[in-house]
Design a protein around this nucleic acid. Structure first.
Lengths: 337, 337
DNA sequence: ATGAAAGCGCTAACAT
DNA sequence: ATGTTAGCGCTTTCAT
């Protein structure tokens, strides 16, 4: 018993034309106070709300943004989603959600994205970001990649400064007197994973230190735990590990503490990347690079809507992420970034 | 550029009528192999995809489900979202996401849900579930409340058996020899919070035990920590605490261990509710009632789509949640539910 | 400022 | 099996 109320019904009741009703409900349109009043009353009485779909068909704007995410178990993603929704809602847009399965059917997602007439797309750290982004971009739908980039190319992207972040961690760890330093990297098929690693290795070099091990944790807790076990299961273990994101860092810490009986940071210092809320929980108290998620989201939305609404060009933005020092890693005396 | 390709363009190129094109892209429609072939080729060539919006306008079905969630920081929600998306996608539906801010503008959300012509709505443990649900239901849009219910009423809802869950915890704790048992409840303005509490108190009564304290944690980590501090800051502390959900339980454990210097479970046993993935992390190793999220989601989608597609009646379902015994609470010898 | 009329891209009778 | 013809509910010229 519902939404069968159309602008015609309202028009009839208000004693005006249907287009008058439309005007009253269209932000920029002109209508006399009298008309406006009659229409508003009639609409109220009938419980009328404009059909967004019909409007979208005509204007060619759905005011819907397709957001593609994967693996919500890593707290970084739900946080991004929450901020994204807030920023988008402020501008009058809504999120149509797409979960990229790991066995990712990129083709299908792209099809669906397009058939729903989304005005734009945000891919959030999805493995196949590049793939999806390129195809949608080719199809003329504005895309921006959130927290993932590509080495070369012109697609819009927003990341933190991963290279600089990795370098900062290196500096911090080396200054703390660590010399046997390992790295459980983020997925080496991703720009983020690669950049953090490169910056880290580079930064270490500045201190004349070479990492004792680098292993690809692929952003998986299971993989990270396995690596931690291997790395620290011998007496020849590293005295510090930089882990490619917080999500893996938690698994690494748990493995060291509860499986290997080691202390963090006394036996091994751990540093992560992201600064998700859990990192601040006392059980982990993780020293980590803070990805300024709020700023990143704001920039993402800004860029995307500029493209959609003003046809602006694709931008590629990097936002610096400061080191958040907590208790999971030995602190250098008088450390400064 | 892009998506300006319509079924007419395809029709022209394929040398058939526009409706022939429509039929080829409509699952149940009839078209000869020849036509189907020509159309498919032409469509391919032009990069045509049907406009879902236009289709939705005619059929009156958008194949979009509005999902209202809040507070993604509690891992239970993102998990629900992930399962929901999977189950819905399987049936050809998509999720339009609505974040309910705490300062919740229920009215606006309802407006938006309706104007987007969603076929149905799922509210996931949102504070104002009842409010939103009732209004949408009144408007004729099928709604099911996920993990939240109402005492009386006919709105569709899916929860775990919270009363039974609370009772199970009581039985477990009492059997473990605990006698000074406290409860940090879920929000007492919610059915889930209330039911778990009631079941718990009831179950304790069976053992002739009365809770030493019951405080409303309102599903907030901050509130829970404050309560834990108050409860366990004295020598007269409880020897066990049942916390209304895992999310709060983590905060309680952290407070006891890192602030108060207590041991869990040696000094105080902790039991939670939900069994989110983090509960299994060694740092917490939380004994908790497992909300069978997968089954709950399946049921939710089932009920909703039955209403949408077959006009079925609203169902109210409760799914039993077993106790998952881990290490955060002393184990009774030979315990059986 | 307002009404009439022409579609947006598609599906669903209705014919053939 | 296929084409023709109405619309779905709305925005947007175009007159008035």
């Amino acid at each position: 018993m519902a939404d069968k109320v159309t602008s015609f019904d309202v028009a009839r009741l208000a004693g005006v034309s249907q287009s008058a009703v439309s005007r009253v409900f269209t932000p920029g349109a002109s209508a006399s106070a009298a008309t406006r009043d009659k229409v508003t009353k009639a609409a109220e009485e009938l419980g009328y709300r404009p059909n967004t779909l019909a409007r979208a068909m005509i204007t060619g704007k759905s005011r819907v943004i397709g957001v593609v995410v994967a693996y919500l178990e890593n707290q970084f993603y739900p946080m991004a989603l929450e901020y994204l929704d807030r920023a988008l809602k402020e501008r009058g847009y809504h999120i149509l959600l797409f979960m990229a399965q790991n066995d990712g059917n990129v083709g299908q997602i792209v099809e669906e994205l397009m058939s729903y007439q989304v005005d734009g797309i945000i891919t959030a750290s999805v493995d196949m970001s590049n793939d999806i982004a390129k195809r949608c971009d080719d199809a003329g739908i504005p895309v921006v990649m959130f927290n993932r980039g590509q080495e070369t190319g012109t697609l819009a992207q927003v990341t933190s400064n991963n290279i600089e972040g990795g370098r900062t961690v290196a500096h911090f760890l080396a200054s703390g007197g660590h010399r046997k330093i390992a790295h459980v990297s983020g997925w080496q098929g991703s720009s983020t994973g690669l950049d953090r690693m490169r910056g880290f290795v580079d930064g270490l070099k500045d201190h004349g230190v070479e990492p004792v091990a680098i292993e690809d944790g692929r952003y998986s807790q299971d993989d990270a735990a396995i690596i931690a076990r291997k790395l620290c299961g011998t007496s020849d273990r590293p005295d510090a590990i930089f882990v490619g994101n917080d999500h893996m860092a938690f698994a690494v810490m748990d493995c060291l503490r509860f499986e290997l009986g080691l202390s963090v940071p006394e036996d091994v210092s751990i540093v992560g990347y992201d600064d998700v809320p859990i990192a601040a929980w006392p059980a982990y108290d993780l020293t980590t690079i803070r990805q300024p998620i709020n700023k990143m989201v704001t920039a993402t939305v800004e860029i995307l809507l500029a493209r959609i609404e003003q046809g602006a060009a694709s931008e590629r933005i990097q936002i610096p992420g400061p080191l958040k020092i907590r208790g999971s890693a030995r602190k250098p005396k008088g450390f400064s970034t």
